[in-house]
């Protein structure tokens, strides 16, 4: 999976920031096996296991996922600020996250 190294860098780089990278794992499979494979791949961030019976999980339908990768970027209020179908480019994701963190920092400073 081409994006995995970038995800690791992003999670590590922003680990002290008010930022959460949340995997939405939505394919059928045995939860134990999936967890083991995640461990093997050093995936140390939280993943919602949204396991479908023969397809993708119920959450994936709620979120209208039509393929992956797909990303939703939420602000501190849970508001959807950006959505991407397909990989927009690792740098684009980084900058959008950083811009939102800067916005949050500015808001907190005002209080």
């Amino acid at each position: 999976m081409g994006l995995l190294p970038h995800k690791k860098v992003l999670v590590e780089r922003l680990k002290d920031q008010p930022f959460t990278f949340l995997g939405m794992f939505g394919r059928e499979g045995d939860p134990k096996e999936i967890a083991a494979r995640m461990k093997k791949e050093n995936i140390n961030w939280r993943n919602a296991l949204d396991l479908g019976e023969a397809e993708d999980g119920p959450l994936w339908s709620t979120w209208a996922v039509r393929g992956f990768p797909q990303f939703y970027l939420l602000d501190e209020q849970g508001v959807i600020r950006q959505r991407w179908f397909g990989n927009p480019g690792e740098d684009v994701i980084d900058r959008a996250v950083e811009a939102l963190l800067a916005e949050l920092a500015a808001k907190s400073a005002k209080k």
Binding site: M1, L3, K7, Q17, P18, F19, T20, F21, L22, G23, M24, F25, G26, R27, D56, W60, W63, V65, F68, P69, Q70, F71, Y72, L73, L74, D75, E76, Q77, G78, I93, V97, L100, L101, L104
Partner: peptide, 11 residues
């Protein structure tokens, strides 16, 4: 809530 969240749909 209170944190910036990136949801990554993947498999």
């Amino acid at each position: 809530r209170g944190r910036v969240v990136l949801l990554d749909f993947w498999g």
